[in-house]
């Protein structure tokens, strides 16, 4: 398996693209963002100081899951088309879930049996 790619020169091989991909894994999925937005206001914790993030992780856009260097940059982001499209998307229906898939596939609601402990 494997071997050297004929078109890949030494210069290119020096650059690893793994770090570029790493940030991709940290992006939240649509359903996670949606849940976060629909939480009551009290449950939201103040943003922790994180020196690895832009602006110490203090300027955050919930909809787009992005950190900004300052309030001005964040406010500029709020005006962008990308952000507004995202807000519109999040205002709509809840994202597709496994439960939706099950129901569409002809299954009933999950059966958890009778409640044993009366609350």
């Amino acid at each position: 398996m494997g071997g050297k790619c004929p078109h890949r020169k030494v210069k290119k091989r020096r650059l690893s693209h793994k770090t570029d991909r790493r940030s991709k894994f940290l992006i939240k999925g649509d359903d996670m963002v949606y849940d976060e937005l629909n939480k009551p206001q009290e449950d939201r914790k103040p943003l922790p100081l994180d020196e690895d993030l832009p602006g110490m992780g203090q300027h955050y856009c919930l909809h787009c899951d992005r950190f900004f260097a300052s309030v001005a940059v964040r406010d500029e982001h709020f005006k962008t088309k990308k952000h507004r499209r995202r807000v519109k998307q999040m205002m709509g229906d809840a994202p597709h879930t496994q439960l939706d898939a099950d129901l569409a596939g002809g299954m009933g609601m999950p059966d958890n049996g009778p409640k044993l402990m009366s609350m």
Binding site: G106, M107, G108, M109, P110, D111, N112, G113
Partner: peptide, 10 residues
């Protein structure tokens, strides 16, 4: 008929 096939967690 959709009520038969379910995820039964019990």
């Amino acid at each position: 008929t959709f009520e038969f096939e379910r995820k039964r967690n019990r």
